[in-house]
Each structure stands twice: as C-alpha cells, then as structure tokens.
Amino acid sequence: MRRLVAACFTASLALTGCSTGGTSDPLQVTDQLVAATPATAPATTRAPAGTLLPTPAADHTAYDPDTHTLITAGGNTLTLTNPQNPAQPRTITLPSTPTALHTDRGTALVALPDSDQITRIDLRTGDTTPTTVPGGPTDAAPLPDGRTAVTLRTTKSVAILDGTRTTTTTPGFEDPAQLLTPGGDLHLLDRLTTALTPINTTNGDKGAGLRAGDGATNAVTDRYQRILTIDTRGQELLAFSVDPLIMKQRYPVPGAPYAIAYDPQRDLAWVTLTATNELVAYDIAGGEPQERHRLPTVRQPNSIAVDPHSGQVYVTSATGEGTQVVTA
C-alpha cells in the first residue's frame, strides 16, 4: 500500500491519474479522506515569550493595521482589542461560528457556514453587513474587480459573487477550505485532497491542480506572489509559485506546524507548532527558508496574525490562555 500511495503521489505531481479505489480525481490518493488537524498540545513547560493579552479561547486571529485592531474568534463571538489599550475590548456576537476571518483596511470579513452568510464588519463602528450565501460559505476573499469569491461546504464548490448575484460556480472539490489571491489570481486550498487549484474567475474553469504535501491545513501569500502552505501531516513548509503553479520549496518543520502568518516587511513566515507549543520564524527571501526565531508560546497555538508595520506577532491560545504578543 505504501508503494501504491507513493506512486500515486508522484503521478499527482505530474497531474496524471492514479487511484486506489476508483476515484477519478488525479490529486486524490485514497477514498478514505481525512483532513489534517492541529496536534493536541501538551501543557506548557516554559513561560510564553513576550506579553499576554487576556483574550478568550479562539480558533481564528486577525490583525487590522489601519485601525490597530486585534480580532479573535471563539464560538460565535468576536473579541476586538486594541493592543495599545487592551483594557477595553469590544465584542460582537455573530449568528453562528465563523470558519474564516480576514481583515482589509478597516473591515473584517467572516464566513458563517451554519448561517449561510458572509458578514462584513466595520472595525471602527462595529456595524455588521451580512450577505446571504446559500450553500454554507466556509471562506470568502475579495477579488480585484470588486467581486467576492466564496467557498461552499454543501455543494463542494467555489462561487464568484457580484454583490449578491452568483456569476460563476466551480464544482468538483472535496473540502474547498481556503481561498488565496496571489497577484489577484484565485487559488483554492482543498484540505481533504490536500491540493492547490487555480480557478479562472471569468468563466469558473479549474486549472491544473497540484498536491500540497500529505495534509495541508493553512496557507498565506507573500510579496513574491507565492503561496506558502503548511503541511501539518507531513510537517513541512511548502512554497508554490503561480502562473504556472509549481512547487518551488519544501522545508521540514517538525512539531505539527499549523497556523501561519507572513510579515512582508521582514520576509518572515511565522509558523506555530502545536505539538510543542512553539513559534518559529523563517526568512523566506532566499532559495531556502532560514530559521530566525524560535520561541515558546501559549498552549495550543492554533491561530496567528502579524502587524506588518511594527512586526508584532499575535498568537492566540485555543484553550483560553490568552493572546501572546511577540516583538521580534
């Protein structure tokens, strides 16, 4: 079986078909698909580096530099904190639990699959603007032309919205989990098939996809228009160039890497290790990642964000130990 899986993996890199049980997806090496998850972290044995903000347990963290707002999402509650004045956080109650959280120039965008909504939040006023999107939206990303790309859990597809109107739909995924827009182009990370796929936003066509390790979980884009992907199961950091989609780097990262954030000013990819409660920074400007920092974290560091201006890094505990603030 190991030889067959290895053969299929090699074939998938070349985008030729291979199957263990009748599946027609050339990027899928087994019919028993299980998405990778963060490791269950042990109790901490070292004090977390930096300082701690008293935020609730959260699965998602984002930072908006325009409003100096740290956002953590736990359950159906968003906690908005100004790290420079953390004594008076604000909270926003959502109709259900978000599966994705992003910020852009004073606005937060959350996906709420159990409510069939994506919601925009004005971080200055706290006003929310929901948009109904049938199909269980799990992620949303604005496109350069003003439209919005949305992943749909129920139909296992990606939809392009112009306001509230769907202009194109791309079906045929297993777990359309995360959208990425390097250079304005749209790519999808599918966690079940652990693959990246480009999508044509004009007609919805799928481009040639590529396997992303053994269990990809999270990804970001960098200023070189690459996609940096965490392979949690394979314990690697992967870098893909786009147009065409090609894997350029793969670097071992032991410790069950999970969350990733990118600092474009310092070319640092910050990665949390959930098996060891650690935070590692890699300089990714060269031909191979170079480790620059390794620090102890709060327990279960499942989410992370970075302030690109100050370089401060925010690591939030999923078990309620707060948000760690690190200045590298």
Rank of each mutant, 00 (worst) to 15 (best):
R165N: 14
L161F: 11
T125K: 10
P95F: 04
Q117C: 14
I71A: 15
I118F: 13
T169K: 10
Q88L: 11
L192S: 14
D175K: 12
H102F: 07
D175F: 12
L94I: 01
T119Y: 05
I121C: 15
D175A: 15
R147Q: 08
R147P: 02
E174C: 04
P171V: 04
S96M: 00
T81E: 09
G209H: 04
T119K: 10
G207P: 09
A177C: 04
L186H: 10
T91A: 15
L70M: 00
T170W: 05
T119L: 15
D122K: 13
P182L: 11
E174S: 14
N82R: 14
A100I: 00
L123N: 11
L143K: 12
P113V: 02
P134D: 11
T164W: 03
T77F: 12
T193Y: 12
P113M: 02
D185S: 14
A208W: 07
N85I: 03
G163H: 11
H102V: 03
T77H: 13
L196V: 07
N200H: 10
P198K: 01
P86T: 05
A149W: 06
G172L: 07
L94M: 02
L123R: 10
G183C: 03
R165S: 14
T107E: 03
L186R: 04
T164E: 10
G184C: 01
A149Q: 06
T148D: 03
T97Y: 03
T77S: 14
T170N: 10
D114L: 00
D104K: 13
A149F: 06
T72R: 04
A108H: 05
P113W: 00
G135P: 05
